[in-house]
Every structure is written in C-alpha cells, then in structure tokens.
C-alpha cells in the first residue's frame, strides 16, 4: 500500500520528516483526514494538533500553530510558524 510522505516544517527548522499511513489535521472548517491517494489540497491549519499515523502503528502528535497544509501526490507538508512534537 502506498504511504504518505510527510514533512512538518516550522519557520526556522524542519520538525519531522517521515512516512505515514494517515494524517489527521484540524482546518478552519473542521478536521481533515488524509489517506494515500488523496486529491491535492491547500488548507489553512487552525490552532491545535495534527496526528500522524506511521506505518509502524505509532501516532505522532504535532502541535502546529498558525500555518497551512498542502497535499499533492501523496506528499503532505504541514508548515507552521511554530511547530513542535508533543
């Protein structure tokens, strides 16, 4: 099964890079879940945390304040002014 390539970047550094089976993030309209093969999306991330489910069944929780989320070709970028792993 295809996986998602996830980059979490903050304004001054890269926070997390890796593969994921699923990414769940909160946008202004509500939560958005992304699985491999998702259509391209550009969204504004609302304050709160995003969850990344890795192929090894680990859940990585990322706090992303004020930023955006882009999805294309199974590549997910979460870019935020301040981002940190929880």
């Amino acid at each position: 099964m295809a996986t998602l390539e996830v980059n979490v970047v903050a304004a001054d550094r890269e926070v997390w890079v890796g593969e994921a089976k699923r990414v769940i993030a909160r946008t202004l309209d509500g939560e958005i879940g992304i699985l491999p093969g998702h259509e391209p999306v550009l969204g504004v991330v609302a304050d709160g945390e995003a969850r990344i489910l890795t192929p090894g069944e680990d859940t990585i929780r990322v706090k992303a304040d004020g930023g955006f989320l882009s999805v294309e070709n199974n590549r997910v970028i979460i870019a935020a002014d301040q981002a940190e792993l929880l």
Binding site: T27, L28, D29, I32, E39, P40, V41, L42, G43, V44, G66, F68, L69, S70, E72, N73
Partner: peptide, 17 residues
C-alpha cells in the same frame, strides 16, 4: 501545479499565506 482543493477557500488560504 495540480488542481488544488482549497480549504476553506482560495481567498482565505491566500489571506493566511
């Protein structure tokens, strides 16, 4: 660029970006 879907809207995304 692929055809993006904007969440919530193109204006809002541009405003934030």
């Amino acid at each position: 660029f692929p055809l993006y879907e904007f969440e919530p809207s193109a204006e809002a995304v541009l405003d934030a970006l």
